[in-house]
Simulated scan of single mutants.
Amino acid sequence: MKNLILFAFLFGICIINAQEFQLTDTYDITNQRNSGQEEEDTWLVDIIVTNNPESHVATLSIPDFGLLDGIRISVLSNPYLEDINEILKVTVAYNACCSSKEEYYYLVTNKNDFIALPSIKNEYAYEPITDIHYIFPNQLFGKEGTILRAAVQYTQTATIKDIKVLRSIAWNDDDFDTEDAITAINY
């Protein structure tokens, strides 16, 4: 009986970890530099593959560099999308009178190419009530072969209250149209 309980516990941990983005050191931030717009305090940073610095993922523009709270890089392994090994997420957090975070998502192909999804920006004046996120097939509420962009509404205790799908993208190994970031503002 003990073995069965231990197995169920370990299996549950594996399922939970498979659905979460995990911090990684596979990718890194480098080449922090001024963009030439000193009056706006805008900086540029490069995202690279750590063990292959020539492998450039993206260049991000960081406005209001003085308000930058941090940059976090995480991955979601085995997202159950054809020819995609993992999802790379770069979260850029700002903190001032209101906090905000921008999330940049990159699909990492079997050939180690990177496909960018439109970025998402969430702004908060108080506790977050609604966030916009991408939901991938191997995550809770995910849909097979589909990337969902959804507004997730939370209760006061930070549990999920409701999910509203904003866009459903059937994955067919295609490029995405570039578009402005999607923004959720909580005031």
Rank of each mutant, 00 (worst) to 15 (best):
Y94S: 00
L6P: 08
N51H: 09
P53F: 00
D113G: 07
T59M: 00
F176K: 10
N122G: 11
N52K: 06
E39P: 12
C98P: 09
I16W: 15
L67Y: 08
N112Q: 13
R167Q: 11
N138I: 14
P128R: 06
P118H: 14
S77I: 04
V92I: 14
L10P: 08
I185T: 11
F136P: 05
H56I: 02
D131W: 04
N186R: 04
L88K: 01
I16Q: 10
Y104G: 04
A151Y: 02
Q139T: 09
E38G: 05
W43M: 11
A58R: 03
Q156C: 07
S168M: 06
A8Q: 14
A184P: 02
I29L: 07
S35Y: 03
F65N: 02
D180Q: 14
I115M: 11
N95S: 15
I129F: 06
Y80R: 06
S99K: 02
V75L: 07
E54A: 02
G145P: 05
R72C: 09
I160E: 10
T157L: 05
K143C: 05
T159W: 00
Q153C: 11
T146V: 12
P63K: 03
N172H: 11
I73L: 06
H56M: 04
T183S: 08
A8G: 13
E144V: 04
N31D: 08
D64N: 12
A18P: 03
Q37N: 12
L81C: 00
G145V: 05
P53C: 00
N34G: 14
A18D: 12
K2A: 10
I16N: 14
C14G: 11
F114E: 00
Y187R: 15
N186Q: 04
L117W: 05
I15T: 15
I16A: 13
I182E: 04
H133M: 12
G145Q: 10
A158H: 05
E127C: 14
T130D: 11
T30R: 01
L140D: 13
N122A: 13
Q22R: 08
T157F: 03
E82M: 08
I163L: 09
F21D: 00
D46T: 02
L107C: 01
L140K: 13
D69Q: 06
P53E: 01
I160Q: 07
N3D: 13
N17Q: 15
N51W: 07
G66K: 10
E54I: 00
A158Y: 06
D46S: 06
T91W: 01
L117E: 07
D173Q: 15
S99E: 08
T130E: 09
F11T: 12
C14N: 06
T26N: 05
V90T: 03
